[in-house]
Amino acid sequence: MKTALIVRHVPREGAAGFLQPIEAAGYHIERVDVAGDDFADVDLCAPDLLIMMGGPMGVYEADVHPWIPVQIDKLADRLARDRPTLGVCLGSQMIAAALGARVYQGGTTELGFAPVTINANGAGSPLRHLADVPVLHWHGDTFDLPDGVDLLASTTSYAHQAFRRGSNLLALQFHAEMGEDPRFEDWLTHFWADLDGAGACRHALRRDHEAHGPVAVAAGRMMIADWLAGIRE
């Protein structure tokens, strides 16, 4: 059986809605937490599929989180081998850093449900399933577009919302996996500083989560299933 490894930067940010298409594609899923003592010994090149999820930390905070450069070095090795890799939010920023791009604070917090604008490259990609679908955004960092990748989607606040390289690499700044996971309540509780910074209302976010979440997750699952079907072994 094919193996998939999910890298969790915090326990409350898992693969959520993406689990279904990953399992349906025949992958046996394992998980590793970056804060665990065994993370330094994990071979990120070994699994058939690597999924890196989000987290509240910044790629530039290696002084606070010493696992960050370890992960970036391991990830760079995997990407050099063109091994299938998916990154979400912080995971996408990790990919950008591993490809040599700058990751930095964007100056504004993008938070809430809103669609991404899919460009010509994205229209022919798995992101086509997200056309006009409000998905969850929750970040304040961004990155320069790495060399050799195709930009797929943007928003007004942040131009670099999704990119891919060939068939085996997909990076998503937004959270199309979230919309039905009860851990959303943990986000509202633990990431309160983001809410305050964005001037966002918990009650409004709950309403939007209920209204848009199931549609976003359904579209996100189709996107991931489409991408997995196109992976080159």
Results as ranks from 00 to 15, higher is better:
A153W: 02
L19F: 01
D63H: 14
L79D: 09
A200N: 03
A216M: 00
R128H: 11
S154P: 05
H190N: 13
Y158P: 03
P21N: 01
A76G: 15
L152W: 05
A101G: 08
E233T: 02
L50N: 10
G55A: 10
Y60I: 02
D48A: 12
W187Y: 15
D132W: 03
R83D: 02
G26S: 08
F163G: 08
S167Y: 03
E180S: 07
D194F: 04
D194N: 09
H137S: 01
D43V: 11
W138S: 04
K2H: 13
E180C: 09
D144Q: 02
A101K: 13
A76Y: 05
R78G: 03
K2P: 15
V215M: 10
T85Q: 06
G106F: 04
R164M: 09
R78F: 07
I29T: 11
G166A: 10
M57G: 07
V7P: 09
E61R: 09
A204M: 04
G179V: 13
T117L: 11
A40L: 06
F163K: 07
T155H: 10
H139K: 06
G166D: 07
E210C: 02
Y60P: 03
P214F: 06
C89W: 07
D132S: 12
L130T: 12
P69H: 14
Q71K: 06
L75Y: 11
I118N: 02
H28C: 12
S92M: 14
H9Q: 14
G106D: 07
H65F: 15
V133K: 03
Y104I: 13
R202D: 04
R183G: 03
H137K: 09
W192S: 13
Q105D: 12
R221G: 13
I6R: 04
V59C: 04
T156D: 15
I68H: 02
G166F: 11
Q20R: 15
D196R: 13
L170P: 01
V7F: 10
A198T: 01
R207K: 09
G91W: 01
R183N: 13
C89G: 04
T109N: 03
S92E: 12
L50Q: 05
V88Q: 07
I118T: 00
G26Q: 13
M52I: 15
E110L: 08
L130D: 07
E23H: 07
G220I: 11
K74H: 03
W67E: 00
A76Q: 14
G36W: 12
P66F: 06
A171H: 03
A4Q: 06
D43F: 00
L86W: 01
A176S: 14
M1W: 00
G54P: 01
A193L: 09
L228V: 05
M52E: 10
G122Q: 07
L228C: 12
N121K: 04
A204D: 14
G36Q: 10
